[in-house]
């Protein structure tokens, strides 16, 4: 899984940092999303999918690689 975020459209609600705190954070100054781990391990992916789903500005994009060895 590859994770991308669009900070330009982020509005800092904090849903991602609340839902998947090992993968997303908010920066101290602006409160906008900070991506901590663009290729999260298997055990965190479910939370990342939830975070992408609840993001109020839909700025989290996931690319799933299925079972390919590159994933």
């Amino acid at each position: 899984m590859d994770v991308r975020v669009d900070r330009d459209r982020c509005l800092g609600a904090g849903m991602c940092a609340l839902t998947a705190p090992r993968v997303f954070d908010q920066d101290e100054e602006e409160g906008l999303v900070v991506l901590l781990d663009a290729r999260p391990p298997e055990e965190r992916r479910a939370a990342v999918r939830v975070a992408a789903g609840v993001c109020p500005a839909s700025v989290i994009t996931l690319t799933e690689h299925g079972s390919s060895p590159a994933a």
Partner: peptide, 15 residues
């Protein structure tokens, strides 16, 4: 809205 929200979001983060 974006201008106001950007000024304020950093003050209301999860942390």
């Amino acid at each position: 809205h974006t201008r106001f929200r950007r000024i304020l979001t950093g003050k209301f983060t999860v942390r």
